[in-house]
């Protein structure tokens, strides 16, 4: 040790090995912490809540819907449909340029550029490129139905609620 201190040129093989080991650990630790910080910063980039209208909202108890009913929630731009004991929530935002579509007997009509959708939300006519979104609907512990606009589901997915 003393010789190495006096003249580093004459360091032994053992010292050389230890030095490599230390530099590897050091580099590893630095990379690891940089990685952790990076990942965590990426997580921070995504807001946990936003100040817009809530994406998850309650739409009332199943009893409030008669069979075959379609109830529009204008603020949320969603229609809730009951079919037998099954429920579904369908978006009312036209996939073309974002107008609010009107439910009709045959499905949905967009007042802006004439897109037409069938009752499942599939495009029938007009410039719309995609079908209307279906959102996940679930039952909250107090019995109310809850629509979550962040979770899209396949068209034709109904939630069965037993009375």
């Amino acid at each position: 040790m003393t010789t190495a201190n006096l003249n580093p040129e004459r360091a032994t093989e053992a010292v050389e090995g230890r030095r490599t080991f230390i530099s590897w650990i050091t580099a590893g630790a630095l990379v690891l912490s940089a990685g952790l910080m990076g990942i965590f910063n990426l997580i921070f980039l995504r807001p946990r809540v936003t100040y817009g209208p809530p994406s998850k909202f309650r739409v009332g108890k199943p009893d409030g819907y008669s069979s075959g009913a379609e109830v529009v929630f204008p603020a949320a731009r969603v229609v809730v449909r009951r079919r037998g004991d099954e429920f579904a929530a369908i978006s009312l935002v036209c996939t073309h340029l974002g107008c609010v579509v009107n439910p009709t007997d045959s499905g949905f009509d967009c007042p802006c550029h004439g897109s037409k959708y069938d009752s499942a939300g599939n495009v029938v006519a007009g410039p719309a490129p995609k079908r209307l979104s279906w959102y996940r609907i679930a039952q909250a512990p107090n019995g109310e139905l809850e629509v979550d606009k962040r979770k899209e589901v396949d068209s034709g997915t109904y939630l069965e609620v037993k009375a």
Partner: peptide, 16 residues
């Protein structure tokens, strides 16, 4: 030698 030890310790501390 001492300097690399210091660097090692501080990088471990950074992880912690």
């Amino acid at each position: 030698m001492r300097i690399s030890f210091a660097l090692l310790l501080s990088s471990l501390a950074l992880i912690v």
